[in-house]
Design a protein around this nucleic acid. Structure first.
Length: 554
DNA sequence: GCCGTTTTCGGCCCGACTGTTTTCAGTCG
């Protein structure tokens, strides 16, 4: 039982307590403990063995006992008792946007609703509006929310699938002693993936079965046929391992990497069948083409570009010289400024932007002007301590609903760099949103607009803009638009990023990290840029420090 | 349920929006 699974059980218990109507602070204590457990680098078992659980902030005697039980038995008896009073299916209802625990609790107690199907039927029958405090609009919003849930695809985010795919490959290589590679939508770095596809250089799928059974995160073998093995994964979804004899490994890699539209175009050029070859590049060479990077294989003009010798030189993680948007413990991050600077030095960065939240974002412990000045003294101190990395004074300034910024211009002028972002009012009509974002772009102090739409993948759609107009103005003002590399956001997406580059707009690729490990999310942002045909020259944080400073003084 | 050189009780992060009301509860970030 790893720490993440323990955190999951604590969160589930908290949700059930909340639906039951328990004291909100008690509920919150379980959630805080879940966060602490999830971020604890050491395995809980070791901490329990030393009897040191209560040394973790937010864990007292009660939660220590609960965690010990979960770690040792894999279950939590209090959850099982609670499930007698509160049906577990109610947890699904919490996923409906605008429906929280209080509403779920009332729907259950007053209408006997326990499932999505029952709730949908009750809403259609006009029963929900009969409840006190509910009306026709609330009922319509619930139906909309249920429709949104139905539209969701249950695909894995690339941030979940990619690390699991890498661990599986590592395990299979060790166990089988043959080449094993990632293929499919994970290799193309799509923002979400339906399953994980791997290709192994073995003659028959049966040879893979024992190694797959013992692989991390695999629950059971689901299918073995002539071509591949499928196994279910703990994270949901499945992994398919294709058996490819070494002589046709290259061909199978092309076929299973896809996309299907890209492969269909290749097959057409080849006159019906892909050449049988050992190396992937030989497939392309046989068709008179240079090798095409997997991120480009979406039938968006890459084959024509390859034929014309016009494939772009794509950006790589190693091109980045710094990260321009991340958070420290001064706002809602977990790491100290010094830890961040040292982590940046390890990654070979030349510079790093400490962009904590501005005062208006209270939930994220945004900084007011007094704490800001205090923070700047700390930044100066760490700059002397870690001379290899230049820390820049920055802020993630909140764009308020009326389009104004959370700091006055005279404060903004004191920052080295200003990141502006919207966290609220994302459902405003396009006209309002355009007024806000164009105002931000035209503010001479703002250097980067972060996660422009505010979307959360598969959870929240995000703001709707006239993108051509956004990019036209950004081009004129020289403001960069961010590709936020947090795998839950990936905002801008590949399509808009490609438009941005074509419009001549500067792009910034940033981790938005709130702790040290998340600095490595930067690679997902680089993937989005690659899928958008972007090279290093369009990205401001590939510049050496003097060039970056020159842009900031534009 | 946790926490405490303000320590064994009484706080705990908070403001805005939404849909429903006519003064507010619930949700969200």
């Amino acid at each position: 039982m790893d720490n993440r699974e323990v955190a999951e059980q604590l969160r589930q218990f908290a949700d059930l307590l909340e639906i039951k109507g328990e004291n909100a602070f008690r509920v919150n204590a379980y959630r805080r403990a879940a966060d602490a457990v999830e971020h604890e680098p050491e395995p809980l078992e070791a901490i329990i063995a030393r009897d040191e659980l209560t040394t973790i902030e937010g864990i007292g005697p009660g939660l220590a006992a609960a965690i010990t039980e979960i770690v040792q038995t894999g279950r939590y008896s209090a959850t099982e008792e609670l499930l007698d009073e509160v049906p577990g299916t109610l947890l699904t209802l919490l996923g409906i946007p605008g429906v929280g625990p209080k509403t779920v609790g009332r729907l259950y107690r007053e209408l006997g609703i326990t499932t999505l199907v029952q709730l949908e039927a009750a809403a259609r029958a006009g029963q929900v509006r009969q409840l006190k405090g509910f009306g026709p609009r609330a009922e319509a919003r619930i139906l909309e929310g249920i429709a949104f849930l139905h539209r969701r695809t249950n695909r894995l985010s690339i941030g979940t699938a990619d690390p699991v795919a890498r661990r599986l490959v590592e395990h299979l290589r060790t166990e089988l002693g043959v080449p094993v590679e990632i293929a499919g939508s994970v290799r193309r770095q799509c923002e979400t993936v339906g399953n994980i596809d791997l290709v192994a250089a073995v003659e028959s799928p049966a040879a893979v079965v024992p190694a797959l059974e013992s692989a991390p995160r695999v629950t059971e073998i689901e299918e073995v046929n002539d071509a591949f093995v499928v196994a279910a994964l703990e994270i949901g979804s499945s992994v398919r391992v294709v058996a490819a004899a070494p002589a046709v490994f290259g061909t199978e890699m092309v076929r299973w990497t896809g996309s299907s539209a890209h492969v269909a175009e290749l097959v057409r050029i080849a006159g019906g069948t892909l050449p049988h070859v050992a190396e992937e590049a030989e497939v392309y060479a046989a068709l008179g083409l240079p090798w095409i990077a997997p991120e480009l294989r979406e039938a968006r003009g890459e084959i024509a570009a390859a034929r014309a010798g016009k494939l772009p030189r794509l950006i790589e993680v190693a091109d980045l010289r710094g990260d321009l948007h991340l958070h420290s413990e001064w706002s809602d991050g977990r790491a100290t400024i010094q830890q961040l600077a040292e982590a940046a030095r390890e990654r070979g960065y030349e510079y790093l932007c400490i962009a904590d939240h501005s005062g208006g974002l209270r939930v994220a412990r945004g900084l007011d002007v007094d704490r800001l000045r205090e923070q700047w003294r700390e930044i100066d101190r760490v700059n002397e301590l870690v001379p290899e990395v230049r820390l820049l004074r920055a802020s993630e300034v909140e764009v308020r609903r009326d389009g104004s910024l959370d700091f006055p211009d005279e404060i903004l002028a004191e920052f080295d760099l200003v990141v502006a972002s919207l966290h609220s009012g994302l459902r405003q009509p396009r006209e309002e949103l355009m007024k806000r974002i164009l105002g931000v772009l035209r503010n001479p102090h703002v250097d980067i607009v972060a996660h422009p739409t505010g979307r959360i993948i598969e959870r929240r759609p995000g703001a709707d803009y006239d993108w051509e107009e956004v990019f036209r103005v950004a081009r004129v003002t020289g403001t960069a638009i961010e590709i936020n590399a947090d795998p839950a956001r990936l905002d801008m997406n590949d399509e808009h990023a490609r438009m941005a580059q074509e419009a001549g707009v500067f792009i910034s690729i940033d981790s938005d990290a709130h702790d040290i490990p998340s600095l490595d999310h930067i690679r997902y942002g680089v993937s989005v840029a690659r899928r958008a045909w972007i090279g290093p020259e369009s990205v401001v944080n590939t510049r050496p420090l003097p060039d970056l400073l020159a842009w900031l003084n534009r």
